[in-house]
């Protein structure tokens, strides 16, 4: 009697647990796929947040004129390797040679 009474209940439990297990595995696989897709599409947005421009900062160097630029002296602030390379590229040495005068007249200018 007892056996007869519990057999249908055990069968139901087996079915329920099987369905639950299948559902969990399916959900887990689907979730992993969604996460992977989301990561792929999110990748380009990373650097955008670092491109925020601080408008209070002053320019690090002048815009390069069409005919180039002579770098007479570099400043005391630290420069990155990229900046140093740019300065080398910008250095133009096609200026006309200065005639050596026997006695140049020297003046000073410091601004007003």
């Amino acid at each position: 009697m007892i056996r007869k009474r519990f057999l249908p209940l055990r069968g139901l439990k087996i079915v329920a647990w099987t369905v639950a297990a299948v559902a969990w595995v399916t959900a887990a696989i689907a979730g992993r796929a969604v996460a992977a897709t989301a990561t792929d599409t999110a990748t380009p947005t990373g650097p955008t947040t670092t491109q925020t421009v601080d408008t209070t900062q002053q320019a690090a160097a002048p815009a390069l004129p069409q005919n180039g630029l002579i770098v007479i002296r570099t400043g005391s602030t630290q420069t990155t390797q990229t900046q140093q390379q740019q300065q080398v590229v910008r250095k133009v040495v096609v200026q006309a040679p200065v005639r050596q005068a026997p006695a140049p007249v020297r003046q000073r200018s410091a601004g007003s």
Partner: peptide, 26 residues
Amino acid sequence: DEQDWIRGVVVIWQDGSVYATTGTRV
């Protein structure tokens, strides 16, 4: 550099760098 009435320019930048246009007879 684009102004024909300007022969040359020297600027002292905020970090102490000194730049000149190519027409400047340094």
